[in-house]
Design a protein around this nucleic acid. Sequence first.
DNA 1: CACAGGAAGTTCACGATGTCAACATTGCTG
DNA 2: CAGCAATGTTGACATCGTGAACTTCCTGTG
Lengths: 218, 218
Amino acid sequence: MTVPDASAPPPYHHGNLRHALVRAGTDLARTGGPSAIVLREAARRVGVSPNAAYRHFSALPDLIEAVALEALAMLARSMEAELARLGPTGDDRLDALAHLGAVGRGYVHFALNEPGLFATAFTAPKTSHGGGGQRDQRGQGDSGRSASELLEDALDKMLAAGVLAPADRAAAATSAWAAVHGLSELLLGPLGGLPPAEREALIDASLELVGRGLIIRG
Amino acid sequence: MTVPDASAPPPYHHGNLRHALVRAGTDLARTGGPSAIVLREAARRVGVSPNAAYRHFSALPDLIEAVALEALAMLARSMEAELARLGPTGDDRLDALAHLGAVGRGYVHFALNEPGLFATAFTAPKTSHGGGGQRDQRGQGDSGRSASELLEDALDKMLAAGVLAPADRAAAATSAWAAVHGLSELLLGPLGGLPPAEREALIDASLELVGRGLIIRG
DNA sequence: CACAGGAAGTTCACGATGTCAACATTGCTG
DNA sequence: CAGCAATGTTGACATCGTGAACTTCCTGTG
């Protein structure tokens, strides 16, 4: 279904090498994290000479960054998926809280389901930011919104529902992100051996702590 | 001052190669993170053949793990340093809160001051845990307590002061750790370009959020 | 419709790295 | 003082990222 015409021989030179390499790189990262992305192996899997990659990427870090962008998009999709299974309760406040929780859950679950890609998503964006005008660096989900934008949306909803104090709004994004990101890393690293049951309980507890910290006092 | 006897020629074979290699590896990690730890270079710096390292480490990951342990110890020391500058206020509750804050601040500051070592501290402990009886895996600070133990101490103090609900005690450690760890990673990664002033404000806000989430309601 | 231009790949080559196997050295122990 | 075992050294390999030069083959121009 991906290939429109299977009978024809592979097009011109290859067709779309760049995309194929990113796919191969993604597969590598999936099982071994960013350091598993090895240029020669990716080329090998695509059936092309190692140096062919240099027609599409300036160097290895460039490929890795492309994979990271892909991973970021998947992260966003995971959050969207969790959002999609949300039923409105009728109470704006509860809805807003649930919204934030879903975003967080989607985040942590992506990390747990795709540890290699998750790790890849957060490494080495050191390459020049180019011009400087663009506020978003791609990596969006199906809704066209990036992971961080989905978080901001959730916080805005809380603000609108009156569960989040305007004064806290600014730091809320980073704090919430930090809590969820840290939890993910911990679950993948030091707390790796945790049984699924305890793990889920911990996720719930942590998300609740974030909520408690954010919610307007009283 | 580090070398007790500078007049004598280097002892037997080398003296204490293992330690020297870990030191060299630490220096490498300091500027480039775990991936900058390269066996041959470490050996080169110590003035020894590459393969000499294999008398002390089964392979590269083994060296990296040793460096990670060293980094963990420095992390603990950073937290201890922050604790040391704490003046008792007379109020147990405030003391407990300040204690937790200091632990968190020591954590984040270490991450910011030693990004490479911080990154190294949390990577690839995948090697077999050996027997299975030992509850602590080294990496202690000068007080003999590891970073995670220092956190637990802070939480116990909060419990004793009545600021932390016993029911929350279990998840508190992980949640607090996650928040602080995530904040550190974010400040080093996606939020890397933040000006110091904003950064400090963010740290304060995040630590306060953790406090708010933990503190007994009311 | 041929053909030049250039994009996309290929082949060769190099230096660096992790690691294995065999060999050399040296301090300690009986 | 002899030999053993720990500690280092040499030599060799496969693999990796990457640069330079060469080859194919699509595509736009006359």
